[in-house]
């Protein structure tokens, strides 16, 4: 019973508005007025992103699983060892990994409320992501020129679908980054919520990065261990 009351008080203090009737209301608290109690120590939006990323794990798990289900089962057409150019893909991989550094710096600057620097790092992240997508478009057209199409073989179907959906996720991330930079410039984002929004965006970006590390390791590098 006493424990329960202690929790109760804890819950109220998290609420931020409490019992102070004269407390000046700040529109930024909008969402949090729906009694967000942070039992897990995570704000709603961050918990939502973690749950969504769990769902995304199953999504990419299924796509990568399909790739491995069909690995070396193609009946014809170019095989991975015929067309992979690991040097070029390493460059784009390096770019994507480095974009995680600029993303982390953007989050750090958002927390310190250096919004100018934050915007610069966000745009730098977006630029590297866009470059990665550019490399992927080049790679796809290069592979098509070498006779690997979506309909050529199981390898073509699984490879393009898996890496294509990863590229789509990077593209969504780039759009998101640009959108946040734009909204921050226009002052449409609540300054108290920028840090958490950028952090959640960072979670997504790092996740997409990690998925690529898995694909690069198990799809590209594995071909060179044989």
């Amino acid at each position: 019973m006493s424990e329960a009351v202690a929790i109760a008080h804890d819950g109220h203090s998290h609420d931020g508005h409490g019992h102070d009737a004269g407390h000046g209301h700040d529109a930024g608290h909008g969402h949090h007025q729906l009694t967000e109690n942070n039992f897990l120590g995570l704000p709603n939006i961050k918990l939502a992103m973690w749950a969504f990323l769990g769902s995304e794990c199953m999504f990419f798990g299924s796509l990568i699983g399909t790739y491995f289900f069909y690995r070396e089962m193609s009946l014809g057409g170019p095989m991975p060892e015929d067309i992979f150019d690991v040097n070029i893909t390493s460059i784009s991989t390096f770019l994507l990994l480095m974009s995680s550094v600029t993303m982390a710096l953007a989050v750090d600057n958002a927390r310190q409320r250096n919004f100018g620097k934050m915007r610069a790092f966000i745009l730098a992240t977006a630029a590297q992501g866009a470059a990665f997508v550019g490399f992927q478009i080049y790679e796809f057209s290069h592979f098509v020129a070498h006779g690997l199409k979506l309909s050529t073989s199981l390898f073509g179907s699984t490879f393009y679908t898996m890496t294509g959906f990863h590229g789509a996720h990077v593209s969504v991330g780039v759009i998101w980054l640009v959108m946040v930079a734009l909204l921050a410039t226009q002052g449409k984002l609540n300054k108290d919520k920028i840090a958490i929004n950028v952090e959640v965006m960072g979670l997504y970006w790092h996740f997409v990065d990690i998925v690529w590390i898995i694909i690069f390791t198990f799809v590209y590098l594995l071909e060179f261990t044989r």
Partner: peptide
């Protein structure tokens, strides 16, 4: 998120 984070105090 709702069930984990929005419970009433206690």
């Amino acid at each position: 998120v709702t069930i984990l984070n929005m419970r009433a105090p206690g």
